[in-house]
């Protein structure tokens, strides 16, 4: 199966790979996995006091599409408020990366990672 140019670009030059301190109260961590293919994705967001995502890092073990989806998401969420980031849909990711139907689940994983990170942030705030 041929990957789109955008997938290959993110795969070869992934943006924002890395980790942040998950115990930092400003850092939200979203961990998600896909049993069907064994992919594991970690998305971390550094969120300012006024709810703006200042930085994002990811680490993904999975196929090219999973890596590209999470790399793209880190680019998209930076500078957004958590409310805006929470509105990113898997279909936006799949469309941007021209993912074929069998790889749609990779974009779902990336969307779920954002949601999981936001949930982690809210539970840390409360």
């Amino acid at each position: 199966m041929a990957y789109s140019e955008k997938v290959i670009d993110h795969y070869e030059n992934p943006r924002n790979v890395g980790s942040m301190d998950k115990n930092d109260p400003q850092v939200a961590t979203g961990m998600v996995g896909a049993p069907a293919c064994g992919d594991v994705m970690k998305l971390q967001l550094k969120i300012s006091d006024d709810g703006i995502i200042e930085d994002a890092k990811f680490k993904t073990y999975g196929c090219g599409s999973a890596i590209a989806s999470s790399s793209l998401v880190t680019e998209w969420v930076k500078g957004k408020s958590i409310e805006e980031a929470g509105k990113i849909k898997n279909t936006d990711i799949a469309e941007e990366l021209a993912l074929p139907p069998v790889k749609i689940h990779c974009s779902i994983l990336a969307e779920d990672a954002i949601k999981a990170a936001i949930e982690d942030y809210r539970s840390k705030q409360s």
Partner: peptide, 19 residues
């Protein structure tokens, strides 16, 4: 469903370590 993502954080952290 196969499409539903798995969200057991502790388990997934361990998966990361193993990878």
């Amino acid at each position: 469903s196969e499409q539903t993502s798995f969200q057991d954080t502790l388990f997934l952290m361990r998966q990361m370590e193993l990878h």
